[in-house]
């Protein structure tokens, strides 16, 4: 479902004497449906960079990144947009939303974009927010002013609203209390059970051990200093 072949990337900083910073070389990995794979490696090894490339947020310079049959390295923007709408979910560490939009709408939006009936989309959003123990009085407020943990839960609910066949998780259990951490892990288990291919970054070793089938150390893709 997710496959990387010989992916490399470097950053060129044009405004800093065109400094070239190679960050990834020969990255290879595969995630099959129903499998959860953890990216590991020290801070700065390129876990987030790799994850962002899989989402199309960062450009890869070389190689192929194929998700659900679409090669993100070659694809037109609209093919990537369509992939993101239908097949590729992403739970990032940061919540980026239009101010003023109520939490319920934020969570339901991925479904609304897929033209799911409004009532059904809202019902699904309510179900997830309930599951994640977000107090109902917050649902009609914009999540912008929420605490870190609350924002994180809104982000997770949004990421799990639609049953994406491929899912990227960036520290999904960070800043969560044990109760909600358990909920998120059960959501991941459920996604695996329905056949989703999941690629994640988990600093939480226990959580990683619980849901991940295997790990890939990204430092093996870190270019050696030239």
């Amino acid at each position: 479902m997710i496959e990387l072949r010989n992916v490399s990337k470097e950053f060129v900083l044009h405004n800093q004497d065109s400094a070239v910073i190679p960050v990834m070389q020969g990255a290879e990995l595969q995630v099959h449906p129903g499998e959860c794979v953890a990216l590991t490696g020290n801070s700065g090894a390129g876990k987030s960079t790799l994850m962002r490339m899989v989402y199309g947020n960062y450009l890869a310079d070389d190689g192929a990144i194929v998700v659900d049959g679409v090669d993100l390295v070659q694809a037109e923007p609209r093919a990537i947009l369509s992939l993101r709408r239908q097949s590729l979910g992403y739970v990032s560490q940061f919540l980026r939303v239009v101010p003023r939009v109520p939490t319920l709408e934020v969570v339901a939006e991925p479904l609304l974009r897929l033209r799911v009936e409004r009532d059904a989309a809202i019902a699904r959003a309510e179900e997830l927010l309930m599951l994640l123990n977000l107090p109902q009085r917050l649902w009609s407020l914009s999540p912008i002013t929420f605490s870190g943990g609350e924002q994180q839960r809104v982000n997770i609910a949004r990421g799990f609203a639609h049953s994406y066949p491929a899912l990227l998780l960036d520290e999904p259990t960070a800043s969560l209390d044990p109760l909600n951490r358990a909920v998120v892990l059960s959501l991941i288990e459920a996604a695996k059970a329905r056949g989703a291919a999941i690629l994640g970054i988990f600093h939480d070793a226990e959580a990683r051990a619980q849901v991940c089938d295997r790990s890939i150390d990204v430092s093996q893709f870190t270019p050696r200093a030239a």
Partner: peptide, 22 residues
């Protein structure tokens, strides 16, 4: 430069875009 909005803003390729974003 052209591309996906978040890609252009998060991983700008052209010097001018990098300047604009930074």
């Amino acid at each position: 430069e052209t591309g996906l909005t978040d890609q252009v803003l998060d991983d700008p390729q052209h010097g001018y875009t990098q300047l604009l974003v930074s």
